[in-house]
Amino acid sequence: MFEARITQGSVLKKLVEALKELVTEGNFDVSSTGLTLQAMDSSHVCLVSLTLRDDGFDHYRCDRNMAMGIHFGNLSKILKCAGNEDTITLKAEDNADTLTLMFESANQDRISDFDLKLMSIESEHLGIPDQDYSAEIKMPSAEYQRIVRDLTSIGDTVLISATKEGIKFSTSGDVGTANITLRHNTTPEKPEEQTIIDLKEPVALTFALRYLNNFSKATPLAPQVKLSLTKDLPIFVEYQVGDLGNVRFFLAPKIDD
């Protein structure tokens, strides 16, 4: 038996909206410690890793580990039927072929349930090493979203360079070129409006803007985003989802021919 209840159901809606274009399907791995998902896009260029801790839910129970194969487009269709203020409960029997989603309105006067058909998905699991990165940048998630959106209108790839001057995003295309530099800025009173650059050594890497732009669909989940960079390694883009957990994106760099 698996059961997870979250009062703030809109978080689940936002999570699935953030993932569904990047990965069409994946396994929700549930255990007594929470719900995780690891899924790569079809070209194996980027990876989404989602962790929702058991204690982040208002109620959580999982008697045995299960992998629930989810089609995110279908899950999104069902979650669109939930109100933003609804409490959402996920439920599945052991070895079930469906996941039940129950939506309760805030004043309990409307209760609905939907069964999502589960899939059998063979997924490749990658071991992501814990490591120190050359540069870690925390910035407002809306700022990150604006930068990658603006640059996507100019070019296809972005060179991200972190130096002691700041972090520079550069692109070029048919229109011309663009450079946006962010400096360390801890003056805003609100921590979520600050830009904090932790630089161990300068680093410069090139990435496909299409994916970085896609990661910014997670913006509604968190006020800040963290970018971590190390030479010749994938970029790591992380959103903390309150006390519930996090959603992490990894994107392989462009490499010289």
Binding site: S43, H44, I128, T206, P234, A252, P253, I255, D257
Partner: peptide, 13 residues
Amino acid sequence: MQQGTLTAFFPST
């Protein structure tokens, strides 16, 4: 430049 794949960086487990 060529697009790398993640499987070249992270081992399969």
